[in-house]
Each structure stands twice: as C-alpha cells, then as structure tokens.
Design a protein around this nucleic acid. Structure first.
Length: 311
DNA sequence: AACGTTCCTCGGTCGGATTC
DNA sequence: GAATCCGACCGAGGAACGTT
C-alpha cells in the first residue's frame, strides 16, 4: 500500500537516474537510484510475486520467512514475462534495481521520529542447480519495509489482469485507483496532482495526452481491470466497473478457430481448468491486445500452459 | 520442459513542427 | 505566441521458432 501511495517506481523504460522527494504533513520520503537506475513498475512485479507467495503461504497456515526461495521460471510465467535467456537477464537487472534503489524516510510514531534508510529488497541471489545452468532458483530477502507490510496485513489484492497491462502509466493508474478509489463509487483527482502521484516526467500537456489515450483505448477495448476513468475538465474521475455477468459477444475471427483435438491438448496443459472458459479468456485477451496469432491452436495451448499451475 | 535466438512492436521522453 | 501534435530515439517486452 505504501508503494501505491507515492510513486516509488519509475515509469520510464530507460534507466531513470532522477532522485525523488515527496513531502506531506511533516513526513517525507526520498527515493534515490543506484547506478542501475530506480526500480521500474515492471520490477515491482517481482515484489508483488514475493508478497503473493507469502500471503498464499499464510492463508494455508504455513510459516513464512523474510528470506524466500522459488523457481525463476515460475516467477517469469506468473508475471507474464518471457522465459528465454533474456528473460533471466532482465530478471537480474530487475533485482539489481530493486536492491539498489534506496529509500529514506522519517517516521513519526509515539512522539519519536525515526530516520530510516533501506532498499526495496535486502539481498537477492540466483542459484544454479544443474551443471548446464538450468533450473534457476532465486532467493530473495525482503526488506523490512516490505516485510512489515506483510506482517501487518497491509497489502491489497490486485487484479490478475494487472500483469497484462503493458503501459507503465496504465499500471500506475490502476494502482492509484485500487488504493484511493477502492469500493467507493467515485474518486476525483486533479490532473496535476495525478501526474505527481504517478511520478511522470512528462509535461502537463503531454501527461494529459497520455492519460487521454489510455482512456480512449479503454473505451474501445475495456482492458483496464476493475475501474473506468474519465477526464472531466482538469480532473480525472475514477469509478469501479460494474461486474459484468455475461460474456460480451466477441467478433467471430476465423483465425482464432480451434481444432477439436486442441481442446484435449489444452486440458492436459491446464489440468482442472474449464477449457471453454479459458478459451473465452484467451480470445478476449488476443482481441484486446491486438495480438497477431499465426497458429491459433499452438498459441492457445501455450496460453493454457501459462495458466496451468496457478489458480 | 527449459532454455536460446531472432525479429518485431511498443512505451515514455524529448524536442521540433504544426495548428490555432 | 501558445497550445497541441508528431516523430525519432532507445530500451524494453512479446511471439515464434530453434535447441538441448
């Protein structure tokens, strides 16, 4: 939740070396980059994955520790990333940025003021299990900040669609909506304040344009999870989307027609899942994102594989 | 299944061009 | 002259296919 409040993560896709400082009512927080730049909204996926693993363990009554280990492959799949060699290099970069990004803050509690400095993760290591370098285990030790949040149950659930948002600004918008709007019928915010909260480096005009584009895109494709956004004057208004019971009829694209035995392959790829439900999910995803599918059958099966281990 | 390679597309930013 | 639009840039992510 704290990371949703202030723009801790960079929206930029290039290395972001600009330090930030935010102040509000005597409290301040400063974020400074290492030589790898500030952690990006995509790097945040790693933290979200760690947190969700922890929460899942807690819900099942298992013990959790600050230091956690998991398969790099699982993380990459769960966060909708590629699992190629470059995928692992990008993961390394993400860990570098997460570890290197320094956060300084003053906290006031019980009449005392604390000065605190920490990284987003305390340490991270990658362990190669086999001689040929496959089956990479990642071990991450969470920082106090993240750990405290988990212990105090100070985390919010996020839509699984979140990982499919590619635009950093879209992700940030969703986070803010999730944090500030929640279940309220409406949340209004000025464009300039929103720009600050997003941590965008764009000018006011440019920012207005980018937001406008996302809103128009959403009107056409309905890809933003849970919330709708509209611009009213100099304000952006956020409202929760109504739950849609019925699947909207989708254009009947012949290129997305599936063969009979593809369904069997899909069932094997994602045991326990309703294949036809997966199919509608897959279709709307493909249509929304405008993905050019060459081989519908193969594409769908690999989509199912990604869904397979996660409920 | 778990990677590597290749080629392609897309995003935020910046600065220049265009329109009003 | 300003507000707005547009395109280059660069680094990142995605898809398909190849390899072990």
């Amino acid at each position: 939740m704290s990371s949703m409040e202030h723009p801790v993560f960079s929206l930029s896709t290039k290395p972001d070396m600009r330090p930030r400082r935010y102040e509000r009512g005597g409290n301040w927080i400063e974020i400074s980059p290492s030589r790898y730049g500030i952690a990006t909204v995509h790097d945040r996926d790693v933290l979200i994955y760690c947190i969700s693993q922890c929460m899942a363990a807690l819900n099942e009554g298992r013990q959790v520790q600050r230091s956690m280990r998991f398969k790099a492959y699982d993380l990459l799949v769960a966060t909708n990333r590629q699992t190629s060699g470059r995928g692992y290099e990008l993961l390394k970069d993400a860990l570098r940025r997460l570890q290197g990004t320094q956060i300084e803050t003053n906290l006031r509690q019980g009449g005392k003021e604390y000065f605190k400095i920490f990284g987003l993760v305390e340490s991270a290591q990658i362990v190669r299990e086999t001689r040929d370098g496959r089956m990479l285990d990642v071990e991450i030790t969470l920082s106090d900040w993240v750990w405290d949040a988990i212990e105090n149950n100070n985390v919010l659930t996020m839509s699984r669609q979140y990982f499919q948002l590619r635009k950093p600004l879209e992700r940030r918008l969703y986070e803010l909506a999730r944090k500030h709007c929640g279940m309220q019928p409406e949340w209004k915010i000025g464009l300039d304040t929103l720009r600050e909260k997003c941590g965008s480096g764009s000018t006011d005009k440019e920012f207005r344009r980018l937001i406008g584009k996302i809103i128009v895109d959403d009107e056409q494709h309905d890809h933003m999870p849970d919330y709708t956004f509209t611009i009213e004057g100099d304000n952006v208004v956020v409202r929760p989307k109504r739950l849609i019971d019925e699947q909207l009829p989708l254009p009947n694209l012949s290129s997305l027609h599936l063969k009979g035995d593809t369904y069997d392959a899909a069932r094997r790829a994602a045991p326990g899942w309703d294949v036809h439900h997966l199919e509608t999910e897959w279709r709307s995803w493909v249509v929304d994102k405008g993905i050019a599918v060459k081989d519908a059958d193969r594409h769908f099966v690999s989509f199912c594989k990604k869904r397979g281990p996660y409920r």
